[in-house]
């Protein structure tokens, strides 16, 4: 047994008591599904972006009495891992997907206890309603939204312009990014500007979540971008820019090669390289490299370009430590 003071027997009763108390309390904490905490989660995770409770279907289904419609286990699994359930083609999940225009429910990364809390809240029938749903919808400014989308205006909390990854109709030159889906028709699919704005609030895809969680767009910014994407004029999908880009890229590379070729056009004509390779002492003459047409020798013993014996002309040009030779 250790003789360190902290491990002495004096503290054992206290430690034992504390351990027992924690063990006794743990199941209570874990089991007490808390409807109030669930309501808070429902607001924080902006579930109300897509779901109402007793207010009819939005992007996703109305959740009134959902706890009666679906088995508790199914509901629990669905709220924790909707992506996994869609992946394994759960029949109910597939049916929902079809009914709601292929709009997948995002995996919100909730713990088991959090899911329990949300289900507890749903069981109360949305008592008191959701505060987020009660807030009046913000009016978005499409011009402002376009500036945010293209990066002419920055998002207040930082974060990249949408066009880093997304393209849409109505952008100039080479359009927007191609990492993520084209957003030309997104507003139609997600129920117009307000639906899109709510959808954005949930940061619904893994990459969106990774990029934006620490620097979320403000509600007004979301509304602006949604208003821009919902514009009628955007209904034309932008043309693919990849071949124009490839052409310009090739042109740029050719220009670079031409610059290099011009800058070093004399690389093989003068200097020491060819004479050194030519091994002028051997006297062999089997080709241009072997003393055939350039041995680089001059009467004063200099090799290469510094022809002549008088004055400065036999010194190399530019800065040099080389001594003057006569």
């Amino acid at each position: 047994m250790s003789k360190k003071p902290l491990a002495s027997w004096r503290f054992m009763p206290v430690v034992a008591l504390a351990t027992t108390a924690i063990w006794a309390a743990l199941p209570t904490v874990a089991n007490a599904a808390d409807a109030a905490a669930g309501k808070k989660l429902f607001d924080d995770k902006t579930c109300s972006a897509c779901h109402s409770i007793g207010g009819g279907d939005l992007v996703g289904p109305d959740l009134k009495d959902v706890t009666k419609k679906r088995p508790a286990e199914w509901l629990h699994e669905w709220i924790s891992k909707p992506d996994a359930m869609i992946a394994k083609k759960d029949p109910v999940a597939v049916e929902l997907l079809g009914k709601y225009n292929g709009m997948e429910m995002p995996n919100l990364g909730l713990s088991t206890a959090e899911v329990d809390n949300i289900i507890a809240f749903l069981e109360t029938g949305g008592g008191g309603g959701s505060s987020a749903a009660a807030a009046p919808a913000l009016k978005g400014d499409a011009e402002k939204g376009k500036d945010l989308f293209t990066g002419n205006d920055r998002f207040a909390n930082g974060g990249p312009p949408c066009m880093a990854c997304h393209s849409t109709g109505g952008l100039g030159a080479f359009g927007g990014g191609a990492l993520a889906p084209d957003l030309t028709t997104v507003a139609k699919r997600l129920g117009g500007a307000s639906g899109l704005s709510s959808w954005l609030a949930g940061l619904p895809t893994p990459t969106m979540k990774a990029v934006w969680t620490k620097q979320p767009p403000t509600p007004q910014e979301r509304a602006d971008v949604a208003a821009f994407l919902a514009q009628e004029g955007l209904a034309v999908r932008s043309a693919s820019a990849i071949w124009q880009l490839a052409g310009l890229t090739g042109l740029g590379a050719v220009i670079l090669l031409l610059i290099a070729g011009f800058r070093w056009r004399n690389r093989l004509k003068f200097g020491v390289r060819r004479p050194m390779m030519a091994t002028p002492t051997t006297g062999r003459s089997t080709g241009p490299y072997h003393g055939g047409w350039f041995t680089g020798m001059y009467s004063d013993g200099w090799i290469g370009r510094f022809k002549g014996t008088d004055g400065n002309s036999n010194r190399p040009r530019g800065r040099t430590n080389a001594p003057r030779r006569h």
Binding site: P160, M163, G252, L256
Partner: peptide, 27 residues
């Protein structure tokens, strides 16, 4: 860097310079 690529024109310019040098490297 992100302020360098903040407007579409600046972004396209930076990207095209990068494409050209990247393609030169590939060649």
């Amino acid at each position: 860097w992100s302020s360098l690529t903040s407007t579409p024109t600046a972004l396209y310019t930076v990207e095209l310079i990068g494409f050209a040098f990247g393609f030169a490297a590939l060649i």
